[in-house]
Design a protein around this nucleic acid. Sequence first.
DNA 1: CCGCATTTGTACGTATGTATG
DNA 2: GCATACATACGTACAAATGCG
Lengths: 274, 274
Amino acid sequence: MSERRVSDDSRNDSPSSEGRPQGHGPKGTGTRNSFPRARSVREPRVSSQIQREVMQLILDRRLRAGAPLPTEAELMESLGVSRNSVREALKALQALDIVEIRHGYGTYVGEASLTPLVDGLTFRTLAQQGDDTGALAEILQIREVLEEGLVRRVAGTLSDAELARLEAVVERMEEAGRAGRPFPELDREFHELLYASLGNALVPQLLGAFWTVFRRVAGVRGWTDDPTPDVTVRRHRDIVIALRAGDVEGAQKAMADHFRGIEARAAQESRGVG
Amino acid sequence: MSERRVSDDSRNDSPSSEGRPQGHGPKGTGTRNSFPRARSVREPRVSSQIQREVMQLILDRRLRAGAPLPTEAELMESLGVSRNSVREALKALQALDIVEIRHGYGTYVGEASLTPLVDGLTFRTLAQQGDDTGALAEILQIREVLEEGLVRRVAGTLSDAELARLEAVVERMEEAGRAGRPFPELDREFHELLYASLGNALVPQLLGAFWTVFRRVAGVRGWTDDPTPDVTVRRHRDIVIALRAGDVEGAQKAMADHFRGIEARAAQESRGVG
DNA sequence: CCGCATTTGTACGTATGTATG
DNA sequence: GCATACATACGTACAAATGCG
């Protein structure tokens, strides 16, 4: 077990493979394995190729999320590959939420959500724990920049109905706070609702991804949830008040204050744990 | 390595040389693997479990990117699962860039980069092409909000050396523009360099991810690259000029103008293609 | 340069759990 | 409960890539 060193590999396509379309050795009596076609001349990896083919299939047929995909058997038949390769490719696509696999039922087009981003960022944050000044603070800074800019853009465009809904969420926060219950989901709902009028479907997903990473890391590290719920409620209420007044600067400042509170809490917890 | 979990109660291993046409029983009634533990009564999925175990292994041993991971054989030994399951789990982790697999060499800890986000967003954008008002505009809006907020934060903190580097990039842009060469990489370098002083490693990666998605989608759709390079150069120069003057508002406005140009071009290309 | 060992990649066969009808 | 369709998992054999002596 010596040290297998890592050197940056160039991204070339390894022109070595002679491209023999012959099937790999099936010991014994190869039954129906004698066709030389499938898989054209030179290809990097069968599994990667299948990934691309499945994605291309979805694009070509314009399949939407939830649409059924060919079964594993059909894919190995139509692509001329083994079940193993098909399964590995589908597993990779499943990790990207490009396909969804239901045991005993079938394979379907996935939502292509930001779940992979959540998984990757969570892992990366946990792995870099003792590294530098904390990957969590970086995520928080991006959330802050995003939301400060976003709240400016929705400041003038919110309808009374939307403002009322935001106030209702704050109200429920206050109830939960009085009852001593934490209200993480309400916090998420508030920020999601806040930017709904933008019509940008990616905004809530991206913010939600960062939010989820924060929650998960906090959970793994055993942080207490929101030691000062009343302050948190007030921060959110200040945002709504500024928005109702049409005060763009005030809304951005209220949002900044909100994040200042989150940062302070995160820093405190980090110190506590070491 | 250290933890070797071998069934000590192997009464008779009988190295199965040949003559057993019988199928191989899966877990439970296996030949060698006869301990009923490991994966107790009800558990979600073996492959998913392996994914978590490998991630936990990286976290527990505090392995950094590039560090070698156990071989497939070692993993199937220590986890008591088949190689197929190990490979499927590793393929999923590879898709998330949590592990890196090198054919004929070994498996290593990955960079946990935002490659999965790029892949997912690219696919999603291409898949939603005829859907609504274009997922590309949503990505562009997020980039815009982010960069407008970020440029405010670096406005006062940039050193002369950093400003000089930015000016050098603009200079190279101008040269390329005069020579009729497109300069996508210089554009990327500019925005990356601009936020280097923040010390937030996630910022350039996230912006780079959005940038790459934009480029890839544009490439697939066959867009021409930058019909007005001189205007693009001027936008970047305006940003640097404002930053040198310490003009925070001016820098943000220049950034906004820059994105207005990109949006206009994207809208035009979309119309052109239909 | 060649052969060898190690390790990942692909393939086939089979048994079993799971969901649907 | 049964039948069917499908994903899940195990085991094995061989191919291809990489590194080393």
